[in-house]
Design a protein around this nucleic acid. Structure first.
Length: 693
RNA sequence: CCGAGGGUAGCUCAGCGGUUAGAGCAGGGGACUCAUAAUCUCCGGGUCGUGGGUUCGAAUCCCACCCCUCGGACCA
């Protein structure tokens, strides 16, 4: 009524077609779906599209491992994903795939324009190459010893033990995760999008309501330096779209992933790609992308840049959410908290998760925690104890004592009902802003009042003396339940459906808040929501701990973060230069002498909680005294093997303040890092403090 | 070290310049028995991270510091 109908295109990030949907992913899809359902409830025109991000080397390799063609593999994943989403009532209008003819047409179309307009350049890039497999290796497919903490078998982009990020070229003893071969450097021509061309437009975009202020602050940092060209090409063999007029060149899947939103739209429209573009360009259309904070870069820079370059409008809004932790820790297989959507649904009700996430989601892109204790408490006390209870006490009573017929709410109930209705704008605003925590808080508080009303008027007593009055009380209670259900409908649609059935009313819409139920006969009560059984929660976690990490083939590329789209092989910077420990430039004897290497004896080694890679070593350097050195060897060398041992360390290295203390030197070691670290030692007769020449 | 966000009752959080600081959950007492042992009621419980400042008045604004989380830099 008051506001005109909005036209809104909504997307959730495209999950990578390489693994199952897990509860971390679900934060985003549930958040998006609640928002979408709310908008629809208000009568707005919403198209909600998504699909699998189906391209890339990880998928190609994974398919091969399973003995499938990539097409068959992603087809299977797509079905699995759709099945999982359906269980959680994610109401996509179109769930498609980046591997589609529409997407290919769109990618080529946009690329051609970018090229024509001079936004594409080519440049030679040197990269790791697997000589056995004859493929270029994404960072994640190079494993080696972490150069920082010397943990062995770490990914090429970052170390899981110490958390350090680096270039694959920094790895000690790098190996191809595909074949085990030693990667070699190889040069190839790559295509780049000149991001700098779009600096002004991108910055202007930040002046709009494109992102919330806290995110905008962060984004502005990117503009303090030159925007680097973005590498959009990959070499054959690659599972993706070929770049036109080029032999053996493919589009990087992060190029076709966001374009996949358009492709999914085309699929929804059942129309050719041009129609999707036309739809997109509609002046009245709002475009909202829901994404995790890990992929802001792609959606705030690359994607708008592509659109600008192609003469298309940018998105209206990025709705950024944080990551999920479970019981206050990162999801962990060993703790049983790495839970797939499927596993969750086997033990627990998806409605509960929708409700619980809603109570935790705010506008801010901060991480949210799924504490199972809190989860159980809140679902039981709020969703079941307050909300469901209101109807489950009133409806059966009306059926049993008063023939199931509602009447007119008693006069005493009018202030309550008025209050319920007056909450509308505030709750609406909370939904609009994605402040679902605020919305549920208000809804619960209203439910408290409604329950109190029932309590105060005791219809079960009243019915003995004044049936009509009792009917009026129960009618009011059900009316209150009906209004609350409208408020809740976007969050727990199945709950709402049950209420509608029970109250024998048409599907509820937001505008029905103002209405009153006419006197009518209600249906038999149906159970609205069961309580969470703590045992089921325990079973779920137990089973998860037991279940072997199957389905994950060696180069496990299941994104460790909950959010989505192309988390693997997603190093945003252009394919970095580097090499397999190339020989350093020649140095003079003076330069060499500048480095003062000394013998030292390890006095003690202690763990540094908070660092995955570093150990704190106390060194006895003889006349030089004692030194504290933080060495990245935790993964490689057991604590008890260190004390007493002679090592070589650089004694005149400038002290370095690190996160967990200051390091007064550097212990020398070889090896790729991670668990492959080999300390240099000297013959046993060397004494601490001696210089190495 | 830089940036962002946060530190308010045992727990999760609301309040973000104005009367004695709130809610839910948990704990304790009571009421009720219509309801999925639900609901209602009462109680205990906080020097609102620390120290300064602005103000008639600060949890709320400013400055410094401490701690946590998340990015980034550095370590490499």
């Amino acid at each position: 009524m008051p506001h005109p109908k909005r036209k809104i295109l909504v997307t959730s990030a495209l999950p990578y077609a390489n693994g199952a949907i897990h509860i971390g992913h679900l934060v985003e899809y549930i958040q998006t779906d609640i928002w979408v359902r709310y908008q629809r409830l208000c009568g707005h025109q919403v198209v909600y599209v998504c699909g699998d991000d189906a391209h890339g080397t990880p998928i190609m390799l994974r398919a091969r491992k399973e003995g499938l063609s990539p097409e068959d593999f992603i087809g299977r994943m797509n079905l699995e994903h759709q099945r999982d989403f359906a269980r959680f009532d994610i109401a996509f209008d179109s769930y498609y795939s980046t591997h589609s003819t529409e997407n290919q047409a769109l990618c080529v179309h946009i690329y051609e324009i970018l090229r024509k307009n001079g936004h594409i350049v080519t440049r030679d890039v040197e990269q790791f190459f697997d000589p056995m497999e004859q493929i270029f290796l994404p960072d994640r497919f190079i494993r080696g010893t972490c150069p920082n903490c010397k943990a062995p078998d770490q990914y090429g982009d970052s170390c899981e033990i110490c958390g350090k990020h680096y270039q694959p070229t920094d790895l000690i003893n790098p190996r191809s995760a595909v074949s085990g071969a030693i990667p070699v450097r190889k040069t190839s021509r790559h295509f780049f999008l000149r991001l700098e061309h779009f600096r002004q437009q991108l910055q202007n975009l930040l002046q709009t309501r494109f992102v919330d202020e806290s995110v905008a602050n962060k984004l502005r940092e990117w503009f303090t330096t030159e925007l680097k060209d973005w590498d959009i090409s990959r070499d054959a063999p690659f599972f993706g779209f070929a770049i036109p007029d080029e032999a053996d060149k493919y589009f990087y899947n992060w190029l076709d992933a966001p374009i996949g939103y358009l492709a999914s739209l085309a699929h929804y429209l059942a129309a050719p790609a041009e129609d999707a573009i036309q739809f997109w360009q509609n002046d009245d259309l709002e475009v909202h992308h829901f994404i995790g904070k890990d992929i802001v870069y792609f959606h705030a820079l690359f994607w708008p840049a592509m659109l600008f370059g192609a003469g298309l409008r940018p998105p209206t809004k990025l709705a950024v959410h944080g990551h999920l932790t479970v019981n206050a820790e990162k999801m962990s297989k060993s703790r049983g908290t790495f839970i797939s959507a499927l596993q969750y649904a086997r033990y627990l009700d998806p409605q509960w998760l929708r409700y619980y996430f809603a109570t935790r989601l705010t506008t801010a892109p901060s991480d949210l925690d799924l504490s199972f204790e809190d989860f159980t408490a809140r679902v039981n006390s709020e969703l079941v104890g307050k909300l469901a209870n209101l109807i489950s006490r009133a409806a059966p009573m009306l059926n049993r004592l008063l023939n199931g017929e509602t009447g007119v709410p008693v006069v005493d109930a009018l202030p309550l009902l008025e209050q319920l209705r007056q909450a509308k704008p505030e709750i609406a605003q909370a939904f609009e802003e994605r402040n679902f925590a605020g919305a549920t808080r208000q809804i619960c508080s209203l439910a408290d009042k409604a329950n109190k009303f029932v309590e105060d008027n005791a219809p079960w007593v009243l019915v003995k003396t004044d049936a009509q009055a009792a009917r009026g009380v129960l009618t009011a209670a059900l009316e209150a339940g009906r209004i609350l259900t409208i408020y809740l409908k976007a969050i727990v649609p199945q709950f709402a459906r049950s209420v509608e059935q029970c109250l024998n009313i048409a599907p509820l819409e937001w505008q029905h808040i103002e209405d009153s139920m006419p006197a009518h006969k209600i249906n038999a009560f149906v159970h609205l929501a069961t309580r969470v059984d703590d045992k089921a929660v325990q079973s779920l976690i137990q089973e998860n701990m037991m279940s072997e990490p199957t389905a994950v083939t060696p180069p496990s590329v299941i994104p460790p973060t909950p959010s989505t789209a192309t988390s693997s092989s997603s190093n945003p910077s252009p394919a970095g230069p580097g090499s397999v420990e190339p020989l350093a430039p020649t140095c003079t004897i003076e330069q060499f002498a500048a480095v003062d290497l000394r013998v030292a004896r390890v006095i003690s080694a202690e763990d540094l909680p908070g660092s995955d890679k570093l150990l704190k070593l106390q060194l006895d350097a003889g006349a030089l005294g004692h030194r504290v050195v933080l060495a990245g060897i935790k993964k490689a060398i057991a604590l008890d093997q260190l004390p007493g041992r002679l090592v070589i360390f650089c004694a005149n290295l400038a002290p370095r303040k690190m996160k967990l203390g200051t390091s007064e030197g550097m212990v020398l070691a070889s090896g790729p890092g991670g668990t492959e670290v080999f300390l240099l030692s000297v013959d046993s007769r060397a004494t601490p403090g001696q210089r190495v020449h």
